[in-house]
Design a protein around this nucleic acid. Structure first.
Length: 435
RNA sequence: GGAGAGAUGGCUGAGUGGUUUAAGGCACACGCCUGGAAAGCGUGCGUAGGUAACACUACCGGGGGUUCGAAUCCCCCUCUCUCCGCCA
């Protein structure tokens, strides 16, 4: 959520920054300010009435104490209809506030000044490249062919169980997936200073609202019900990313400045409806309804936000470096960024069998946008209570990392060589057809 | 699922209709004291809106009601704890 004061005092600045996203949100500022003004007008009026009521009530109390009952009764009569006026004006103010907040929740974050203006992914600048595309003396296979030959993933049976977009890892495929998860967690926890978290996989709607997935993108997520009695419980949702539960851990809290920075790392499966994406990259493991991910979350003082973002990208890059993968880092332009983000870097790993780069990490600084939505603050020793910056980044997404790994390290004989950093976890240096 | 007890500021904890603008304590900040510190003493200190600054308004788990007036009385809901039942 944006700061209402910023919108009031600097509407043109806000319109300009919103326009850079190219989604037309700047048009909501004028009606939003009208609701805000209506609310403030009603509030000023009703507060005057309440002040009167409070004063007279106090006088009545004093008169009763002095046993001047007749005078007290007269005063009661005098203020009897005040309550009705107050109640109706309160409703006016509440309605205006609800209208205003409805719009507030649907406004995306403002892009940071350092973000390159642009409309689509085509406009995303490349920031840096690590390594080079590997060269093969043979025609590299795609991951689907490799996985089927090595029996790492049973695509057909996964579809039988759950429909398209689900994966059934088998034998060495399942072991490789588990080894990668363990490797990623250990790396971030022991070398990058994160604290491990294992959160719930189902959360209430407030969590999705807190990070900006609700109300605007409600159709993207899986809701779950308990038995046939769905209406009784508040509805729960399968998390689309560990960001949803983990970023909300300190919702409605007032942290101490000494508690910061908070750095959390969590492995979870992620569930996504991928509505509207049917037929786009649906073959194989690139776009699925359920995948594993190790997520990084930071809560930091605002002045540290962008330093911490750079470090977070570095933490994710380290994964790919240790696994011997070629990748590039790009910055998302203003038109391509997610709803809550002020600045985002994507890391794309090279998949030789696909002949393309795959997004395996997205690292964002949401500044105080999410903190406002979830009312998370910290007590500054010098400047009162402050909304911290909240950052999230994948470190990294698993199914696509799996793809890049098997496609990059495939051999002429059809086997896959395991990078040395991963060998202690998988307990083999190679996966071959007969093994 | 059944029965009972609870939910008050960063924490703790009083408060059962009217000087409560939420007591006291802890923590925190500043000062006195001290060679320095601790202890002690003094002052300040909830959140949000509002104002140039005051004033003022709201907030005692959430929502509704009674009343001139509600932390306090009534109703509904949520959550926590204890016991029982069920259960990996």
């Amino acid at each position: 959520m944006l700061d209402i004061k910023l919108i009031r005092e600097n509407p043109d600045f806000v319109r300009e920054r919103l326009a850079l996203r190219g989604a037309g949100d700047e048009g909501h500022i004028t009606p939003l300010l009208q609701f805000d003004e209506a609310r403030r007008t009603a509030l000023a009026e009703v507060e005057t009435l309440k002040a009167t009521r409070n004063r007279v009530s106090k006088e009545i109390g004093a008169l009763m104490g002095q046993k001047k009952l007749a005078e007290a009764e007269a005063k009661k009569q005098e203020t009897r209809d005040l309550g009705d006026k107050i109640a109706s004006l309160d409703k006016v103010a509440a309605q205006a506030e609800a209208d205003r907040d409805q719009l507030m929740l649907r406004l995306p974050n403002l892009p940071h000044a350092s973000v390159v203006p642009g409309k689509t992914a085509e406009d995303n600048p490349e920031i840096r490249v690590h390594g080079a595309k590997p060269e093969f003396a043979f025609k590299p296979k795609g991951h689907v062919e490799l996985c089927e030959a090595l029996k790492l993933v049973d695509f057909a049976r996964a579809t039988k169980l759950s429909g398209s977009g689900f994966l059934l890892y088998t034998n060495w495929g399942a072991r490789l997936e588990r080894a990668l998860i363990q490797f990623l967690l250990d790396l971030h926890i022991t070398e990058h200073g994160y604290t491990e978290i294992a959160p719930p996989l189902m959360v209430g709607p407030q969590c999705l609202e807190g990070v900006g997935q609700f109300p605007k993108f409600k159709d993207q997520y899986y809701g779950v019900a308990e038995g046939d009695d769905a209406g009784k419980l508040g509805k729960l949702y399968l998390i689309p990313t560990a960001e949803t539960p983990v970023a909300n851990i300190h919702r409605d809290e007032l942290l101490k400045e000494a508690d910061l920075p908070v750095r959390y790392c969590a492995y979870t499966p992620c569930f996504r409806g991928e509505a509207g994406a049917a037929g786009v990259g649906t073959r194989g493991m690139i776009r699925v309804h359920q995948f594993d991910k190790v997520e990084l979350i930071k809560i930091v003082r605002p002045e540290q936000g962008y330093d911490e973002l750079e470090k977070m990208v570095g933490n994710a890059e380290r994964v790919l470096q240790l696994l011997g993968l070629h990748y590039r880092v790009i910055m998302l332009c203003t038109g391509d960024m997610g709803f809550g983000s002020a600045k985002t870097y994507d890391i794309e790993v090279w998949a030789p069998g696909q002949g393309s780069y795959l997004e395996v990490s997205s690292c964002s600084n949401c500044e105080d946008f999410q903190a406002r939505r979830m009312n998370l603050r910290f007590k500054s020793e010098t400047a009162g209570n402050i909304f911290p910056h909240i950052l999230n980044g994948s470190g990294t997404a698993l199914a696509r990392l799996f793809v890049a790994l098997v496609e990059t390290h495939q051999q002429a004989d059809g086997s896959v060589v395991i990078p040395s950093a991963l060998q202690p976890y998988l307990k083999t240096d190679r996966i071959a057809a007969a093994s």
